[in-house]
């Protein structure tokens, strides 16, 4: 592992008085798939959004592909072209059909000509298995199909890194599999991926590393086997037990500082 694809150094982020990220250090190597897990409000989405500067970090540095994107003089639009982002709510452009969703960014941002953009769009639609929906509008697609189109749209820009912000959380359970299959294929092809998710099966089987966050810090960072199967920290264990077996959770007077201490 030479230079890491993503490097986060002592990252802090506050929204007003709310200190969401409290000093994050993280490196993701080329071709690595890292799943970030943690309870809601732990700052995992904020961390992901800091990596392409959708959120401006309060302090700290973020490097992507060797470029310090937190440098105010860096051309953020140029950096973002190398970082694909997939959102929980898909965020397809509803006024454009599927093909146009893929071609417009290529043409406007990368200045590709019409034929080339169309060719790359078709390739990437095939990659996510949705060639037959090329002319459909987003509103006529299921959530799972919309999310796969969103992945294809990001891929059409030829990114070096892909960020996934809870990509299956807004989907009906039976549609999750198709999206995860696409992501698994992408991982196998060697894409560098940072995935905020609650899908433990995906994390266990696909991820090279799993990062557990809580309270704005990284609590645990290691292989899926280490973090999911043999968590060292009580907080991780507590979170995983609630996630894997939600019916067994007990009522607790939970505030964030009590998380990790099981209720009496």
């Amino acid at each position: 592992m030479t230079q890491p694809e993503i490097r986060v150094q002592d990252l802090h982020k506050s929204f007003g008085d709310n200190h969401v990220l409290r000093g994050i250090d993280l490196e993701i190597g080329h071709g690595e798939v890292v799943c970030v897990i943690g309870p809601s409000g732990s700052g995992k989405s904020t961390l992901l959004r800091c990596v392409n500067l959708l959120e401006e970090p309060s302090t700290g540095e973020v490097f992507v592909g060797g470029t310090e994107i937190t440098d105010p003089d860096v051309d953020i639009d140029a950096v973002r072209r190398r970082i694909g982002m997939v959102f929980q709510q898909f965020n397809l452009f509803p006024h454009l059909n599927v093909t146009e969703n893929l071609t417009l960014p290529q043409r406007r941002v990368l200045r590709r000509d019409k034929a080339q953009a169309a060719r790359i769009a078709a390739e990437n639609l095939a990659r996510v298995g949705l060639s037959e929906k090329a002319d459909a509008y987003p509103s006529s697609l299921s959530g799972g199909q919309q999310q796969r189109v969103a992945i294809a749209r990001a891929l059409a820009m030829g990114p070096e890194v892909m960020l996934f912000d809870e990509p299956t959380s807004a989907l009906d359970p039976e549609l999750v599999g198709d999206v995860l299959a696409v992501m698994r294929r992408l991982a196998e092809e060697g894409m560098t991926m940072m995935v905020v998710t609650h899908e433990m099966t995906f994390a266990r089987e696909v991820a090279d590393r799993v990062v557990f966050m809580d309270g704005g810090v990284i609590v645990e960072d290691g292989t899926p086997d280490q973090v999911i199967a043999r968590p060292r920290h009580e907080r991780t264990r507590h979170f995983l037990s609630r996630l894997l077996d939600p019916a067994m959770a007990e009522v607790e007077e939970g505030t964030s500082d009590q998380v990790g201490k099981p209720a009496q």
């Binding site: 392409n52 140029a78 973002r80 709510q89 965020n91 960014p105 406007r108 941002v109 990368l110 990001a154």
Partner: peptide, 26 residues
Amino acid sequence: PKGQTEAARSLGFSPARAMISIILPQ
């Protein structure tokens, strides 16, 4: 929706271009 701007920006659209190509048509 705010997500439209975020999607456009994350694809590398400049603020002005996101406004013209994505936000204003909607």
